[in-house]
Design a protein around this nucleic acid. Structure first.
Lengths: 226, 226
DNA sequence: ACACGAAACTGCGTGCACGCAAATATGCGT
DNA sequence: ACGCATATTTGCGTGCACGCAGTTTCGTGT
């Protein structure tokens, strides 16, 4: 019990029952901590959130808080993003059998971000660089579960290829999200330096979809080879 | 003077003269800190290195040490890897004009890793997960300078495409390096679980080159479009 | 119901990252 | 050489991440 506890790691968040009282309490504790962190951030700004207060609000010790999150930004992002990266496996498994990887992967990834951060969340992300970074890191977390799901689906692909593909896709998505957030922030407060790109996709999902088109040739090559 | 001080950021490490006494002292301090960190790690193991001792050995205050590095792993990796990620710009600019991106990018990236970590470094990396992670992070640092260099070279490419490409290449290289290190470590101490891939490329450069072939179709598509 | 083992929580101590402000060193103009 | 501005270093205080070990809670078998 010393790795950060992901609520979705074991129980699959919605498709399987938690395994017992211990597991149910872990899920509840994690969600309580994340919800408390977000609420406190909305009240005091991210910089004003103390880990002691998060722990108090969730009814656990600060040391227990640390068992779940290693920073307040992680806790806040857990509330904002609800570990959607960890659901990529299920999303890809839900794609139609026989669908080309170049379509299945893109659709599965993009579908995780159909509902991007709301106005309150965008406000928080704009005000706290560390929170922005953690949010992008949460997108990078697509990598491992995506690799596992692709390996399952594309059984003729070697492990190296799968791993590289997953790393590239996760990085593209993270990179696009970063630019999207920057563009949104510029929309909220015009950037005096004038360096921000003129066109920001309407949604996070669109931004991620556009980024994955750059990788389409590589994905398509795997379809032909597989 | 509150961002981490990179020795290569301004002076280009070898092609331009440092700008003055201030800059020369900053370079010297950073190098002294990195060298001290590595020496102490070799003597005491990574876990036995204290930031106070690094600072003492380099003749600065702990607070100053923190101006350069935010962790001892960063300091050690700085000594091991010598900021080679930051040299990708120069490497790409040195590629022949007119060479396809699919070749220039691969060759420039791979050339940074022609001499990978030596036996001592591999021993340190094997013993300290946080050091291993920081080493991989240093490879991820390829992203921004690579994007800048590609933008310069492929002037017909839009910014989004450049950024996605750079993110994907850096992630592929990082991912490959991680597997390479894991394979090397397995070679040093057979993995009882038997899960480690049977074939490890002979060198880090080979591993990175192989990973970039997965992205070749995407790079090649840009060549045709550009 | 009870005993035991494993998992999770907790308190404590320690090392450390970083904001803040004062002190020091360098660069520049006269 | 001197004065001033700027960059860098330093000391200090504070919040916090985490190893360690003891306590509590849950799960399982009898």
């Amino acid at each position: 019990m010393r790795d950060r506890i992901f609520s979705g790691t074991v129980c699959g968040m919605g498709t399987e029952e938690p395994q017992g009282l211990r597991e149910r309490k872990k899920v509840a504790t994690r969600e309580a901590l994340a919800a408390a962190a977000l609420r406190l951030a909305e009240q005091h700004g991210v910089a004003g959130v103390r880990v002691d207060d998060i722990a108090d609000a969730a009814g656990v010790s600060p040391r227990t808080y640390n068992n779940y999150f290693s920073s307040r930004e992680q806790a806040i992002v857990a509330a904002l993003a609800a570990e959607r990266s960890l659901r990529i496996g299920a999303a890809l498994r839900a794609r139609p059998d026989g669908e080309p990887l170049s379509v299945a992967v893109v659709e599965a990834v993009v579908s995780q971000y159909d509902d991007g951060p709301g106005a309150d969340a965008l406000g928080l992300l704009a005000d706290a660089p560390a929170l922005h970074a953690e949010y992008l890191e949460s997108i990078s977390a697509l990598e491992a579960p995506l690799a596992a799901a692709v390996a399952e689906r594309g059984r003729t692909l070697d492990d190296e290829t799968v791993a590289v593909l997953a790393a590239a896709v996760a990085a593209a998505a993270r990179s696009a999200a970063g630019r999207w957030l920057t563009g949104i922030r510029a929309g909220m407060a015009p950037d005096p330096s004038g360096l921000v790109a003129v066109t920001t996709p309407a949604s996070l999902a669109d931004a991620i979809r556009a980024s994955l088109t750059v990788l389409s040739p590589a994905l398509a090559a795997l379809d032909r080879a597989g």
